[in-house]
Design a protein around this nucleic acid. Structure first.
Lengths: 316, 316
DNA sequence: CTGTTAGCGCCTTCAT
DNA sequence: ATGAAGGCGCTAACAG
């Protein structure tokens, strides 16, 4: 039953003050080597552990950062978090996870809870763009808590963001299909209120334009990022009088659904039809060339956030 | 610049005491409806947010739980965490993530940091069984911090654990292969110092025995849980004078590697060779029957932990 | 029903 | 180099 050991316990045992113990423990220069040694030894013997909570209250610094993602069990988000954790752990920070499930209320609620928990920074991939959460986000800024967006962002003054170049990604993906000899390329566009999807869409358009292909409105379908949405979309596309022979999907999941449907209809992939996804979910690696995917390098994003954060933390 | 608003600020404005404000905010029965209303309104107007840190220090309860996993970017662990987060969020708890990368030092370090951060509970999938970490774990118990193992566990008095029945899983997987007509079944066993791998191995043995198949030592290879290890293992097995025609792999990743190598050698899966994995990484779903996998239901594990934890938290 | 007091564990002036 | 004192923000025990 090792009870709580505080600096007072050490002080009492050594017949000195808690202040002195604190100084010794914190490598304060104003202390004699002798007492420091004594304190350190006693601390070790008594198995003293600093109470981070008290320190946090005192210093106003919790050494925690919050990460808000739609869901954690997606390889992309998990990898981002891994990147953050690996970078920040050595600096003494912890990572607190929040999920929104794309729900705006939970998103706002999560920001507030993290603020109440006095996190030193917040990294988020926003689910919704609305005046509601814009309001909360402004409060984060007012509180001087470093906020960084990643992947899906929102343009707010004073907020950095870490994204890949989605325009370029969309461009490359489309160009890749063109290079493969595809002549009629459809696009599964995501939620167009989110900038990343807009940009991927623009990249797609630009690639068509630059390579002399016409842009056809009926080849663009807005889909959710899941397998079923991809199946539906593929069905619709294949029913067109002049169906496409390739798809650039904004999402790996939708792309996978499309592939399933296309195969289902007896069309050979990739001989007769090509699909490129976006996001690089690990399953894309095992589909034997039937789907390529633009890599978002999530680990790198996580690490990028960490340096942005550490910077603003030390300058703040 | 919305500065920190404390209960003292509210108290001053209303010309009452901080204690009264606190009571009003916490729905303490001993307070007049009138003052409560006043306080609540003022709090809202002044945009007061409770400082959880202060509350935590005061109450000795941080409302955080720590989760220690080898890595977070594995679908299995991510799903467990998702299960925990979903269950615990409504109860006001946060989830703090730590990764060990299978490193014993980081494992011990993580436990200590979580303890220092005053978490209310710890859920961990241990990487190593050693006297070192057994020592730290005993300290967790001594501190009365609820500790629950999941997936990979360790037998320590006073520690619950949440696992699937690995023995049964191994048994079912092997039986499945036998039912498919496989006659020579090899086993990629994991690290045998971990109980889950021992149990899967035992399940494998038992299934062979119960169905009249001989157990052959040379059919059992200890492998790490990654693709390369699976490739190596398959190479060795196929070089045997009497090679197997099926593999039960303790790990999906090793299983995948084995499949790659087997295909590489021109052997048809699943016609000539069957592989069953364990863990249910999502990619197994897209391999068109070439690999089956035992489902570990990670979300359920996460939820199971949560109820164990909430129980001990309320009884503790 | 409300005010007073005290302390959670730590650190940091201000003295000495 | 060390001690004394106060406060981070909150709540619980004790008065009244």
């Amino acid at each position: 039953m090792s009870e709580k050991v505080t600096i007072y316990d050490i002080a009492k045992k050594l017949d000195i003050t808690a202040a002195t113990v604190s100084r010794a423990l914190n490598n304060n220069p104003k202390i004699s080597p002798a007492t420091r040694k004594l304190v350190l030894e006693a601390a070790a013997k008594m198995n003293y552990k600093q109470n981070k909570l008290a320190q946090a209250l005192r210093s106003g610094k919790s050494n925690n950062v919050g990460v808000i993602v739609p869901r954690i069990d997606s390889n992309f988000f998990a990898s981002v978090i891994r990147g953050i954790e690996e970078e920040l752990h050595p600096e003494g920070y912890h990572v607190i996870i929040c999920q929104t499930h794309e729900d705006e209320k939970r998103e706002i609620e999560n920001i507030n809870t993290l603020l109440n928990a006095q996190v030193d920074g917040i990294l988020m991939s926003i689910s919704n763009v609305s005046s509601e959460n814009e309001h909360v986000i402004k409060r984060v800024i007012a509180k001087n808590v470093p906020l960084v967006f990643f992947d899906r962002k929102m343009n707010v003054d004073g907020v950095s963001s870490v994204t890949i170049n989605d325009f370029e990604g969309g461009y490359i993906a489309t160009k890749h299909l063109i290079d493969q000899g595809c002549t009629a390329i459809a696009h599964l566009a995501g939620d167009q209120s989110l900038e990343i999807y807009q940009n991927r869409f623009q990249g797609y358009k630009q690639a068509l334009l630059d390579n002399g292909f016409p842009f056809k409105e009926e080849y663009v379908l807005r889909t959710k990022s899941n397998v079923d949405a991809g199946i539906d979309a593929a069905k619709k596309l294949l029913q067109l009088g002049n169906p496409p022979n390739a798809i650039f999907s904004s999402s790996d999941f939708a792309g996978l659904g499309a592939i399933q449907e296309i195969k289902e209809q007896g069309i050979k992939i990739p001989k007769e039809f090509c699909v490129v996804g976006f996001g690089n979910e690990p399953f894309t690696k095992f589909l034997e060339l039937s789907i390529s995917s633009v890599d978002q390098s999530p680990m790198e994003m996580g690490k990028a956030f960490s340096s942005v954060f550490l910077n603003s933390a030390s300058n703040g």
